[in-house]
């Protein structure tokens, strides 16, 4: 187990920095979730018909 050095000087975020970081984190989360949805749905729309043709026979 790694234990943090108690003598190490740590950075304490100001209230403004903490709020900004939380704001950025939420935005990154939303953007990544949107990207997943976009690629998932677009794949179904674009390759849906082809994907259904991937039967075991076709794959061999």
């Amino acid at each position: 187990m790694i234990v943090a050095d108690k003598n190490l000087e740590l950075v304490t975020l100001t209230e403004r920095q903490r709020k900004a970081r939380r704001n950025r984190s939420v935005a990154i989360g939303v953007a990544l979730a949107a990207l997943v949805i976009i690629f998932y749905v677009a794949t179904i729309v674009k390759f849906g018909h082809n994907a259904s043709g991937l039967t075991p026979t076709n794959l061999m």
Partner: peptide, 10 residues
């Protein structure tokens, strides 16, 4: 320095 940029700034 720790960033104070918000999503709105980006």
């Amino acid at each position: 320095r720790m960033s104070e940029a918000t999503a709105g700034d980006f």
